[in-house]
Nucleic acid binder design. Sequence first.
DNA 1: GAATTTAGTTTCGCACTGCGGAATTAACAA
DNA 2: TTGTTAATTCCGCAGTGCGAAACTAAATTC
Lengths: 288, 288
Amino acid sequence: MKRPGRKAATDRSFVVALSRGLDVLRAFRPNDGLLGNQEIAARTNLPKPTVSRLTYTLTKLGYLTPVPRFEKYQLAPSAMSLGYAALANLGVRHLSESYRDEVMRETGGAVAVGGRDRLSMIYFGQSRSGLTIGVQLDVGSRIPIATTAMGRAYIWALPDDERASLLRELREHYGSRWPRMRDGIERSGETVARHGFAISAGEWQDDVAAVGVALKLNDGTGPYAFNCGAPAFRFTEDRLRSDIGPRLVAMVRSIEAALGTVAPQSKKEENKKIKAGGKVARMVERIK
Amino acid sequence: MKRPGRKAATDRSFVVALSRGLDVLRAFRPNDGLLGNQEIAARTNLPKPTVSRLTYTLTKLGYLTPVPRFEKYQLAPSAMSLGYAALANLGVRHLSESYRDEVMRETGGAVAVGGRDRLSMIYFGQSRSGLTIGVQLDVGSRIPIATTAMGRAYIWALPDDERASLLRELREHYGSRWPRMRDGIERSGETVARHGFAISAGEWQDDVAAVGVALKLNDGTGPYAFNCGAPAFRFTEDRLRSDIGPRLVAMVRSIEAALGTVAPQSKKEENKKIKAGGKVARMVERIK
DNA sequence: GAATTTAGTTTCGCACTGCGGAATTAACAA
DNA sequence: TTGTTAATTCCGCAGTGCGAAACTAAATTC
């Protein structure tokens, strides 16, 4: 008999213990700092002894710190270092910095790049001036995909099939709130098609207005997306359309040019890509 | 027969698969961005099929992205979000920000807080002005424990037994280079005892000079450490001793006061702590 | 100060996972 | 073609990782 609570028994390459351990780490969300085994068990739906073993392992490895005073655990610095290795390797982050700074200075808005994690976009980097008060987002911050300019730009940069499955996930997640969100997403689909940027004015936080533009890479990763936002009184919807949006589009196009993302650079590369087709297809299929 | 490559078979609570999966993630270091299964296998000393399964699992979970173009993997945004949750929960980071800023302005040096991961210190947060060129360290950056001011301050804030075992690890790690490092560490032990700060002038990077001061918490986590550094021509050894060092010590004492780290706050807490003794001891013992 | 509640740990037998040596497939290079 | 290098698939089985239930230990209630 199959034990309860397992993933599909058929997938012999999926390492359940690893998945569960990472779920335990993810149970720690910003601002609830300390968690006991009990709470972790509740959040992850894992039985207590299993959680006990996983926290024990994670502690030994240095990803969790016990806080004896409260008999709870806290994420440790090691957990951080995982993430920041990721950051350092995201070329877009570094390469786009000067472009972001420039647009920030020109527009007075905060400019950021991010990528997707589940149903959120995560900030890789951002340019803020002392002026851009209000929005206090840092590297690593999450914003929802469905209601933000960055997220919507991302959605419309996805290949059709991936977009479809993302939208399905969003629908499930949001339940009754979905129709309103879908409308916003569809509207931005139009602005993306027509002008290259998505808009969200007051749809995420009612005093924040922003535009978003996606960046596609040709290495199979991404897409990523940029935004430029400010308090609503500073970025009127008109200004977003006529000034900020086009500017951000221009910025991203420049970055694309700098990255040479348009097409494989050489005959050889082109060749490689075609030949790799079979293998890649299998790879993607399996991951799907 | 025991299979090769396993941890001590006796520890029934240690989840090997989780440990290995995290090792795979850690195999990605800043600036070598893409790794294939082969390279991961080499770095982690795991057999190829095992790596295959782990990368498959991590990819499915969204921690790795396949880069089909090169048939390799890259750390994905999800990996980052783990680390960020850690950051957001480190009260010291946020609470110390204004203090750090002030010292940065007063001294012209970059001021940072960090904690330990293995044999490195990791930056949680830092204050840099436009003036502090040269040192380009970001949140998440690693610097060695043995040769930096931050690391040395940390070492001398550890309880004796933990310090001893850390020093042992360092000795093993550095081999023939150890004696020189030990000298530096010992020297800073004296300055810490006498003045409260550690110095590293040109011992990490020969054009960087810094002081470090540790912060002990009474919740059982940490310790953490602060540094204040600048190009060597700006911070002469004399100035470190007479000006920067004392200033950083004063800063950390203020932060400690603000955190109320000196003793348990209430009779009830005190009580709790004592009663918890037995359980805590067991916990620590097991983790040791 | 006994009874209850709440949180975490230990036990233990065994089902099934995760393992890894060896074979296989695939993409290139010569 | 043949050789080389890298990744995946096979597959039998050792032993890991599992989780229900029992247990311990604090904190709380009455």
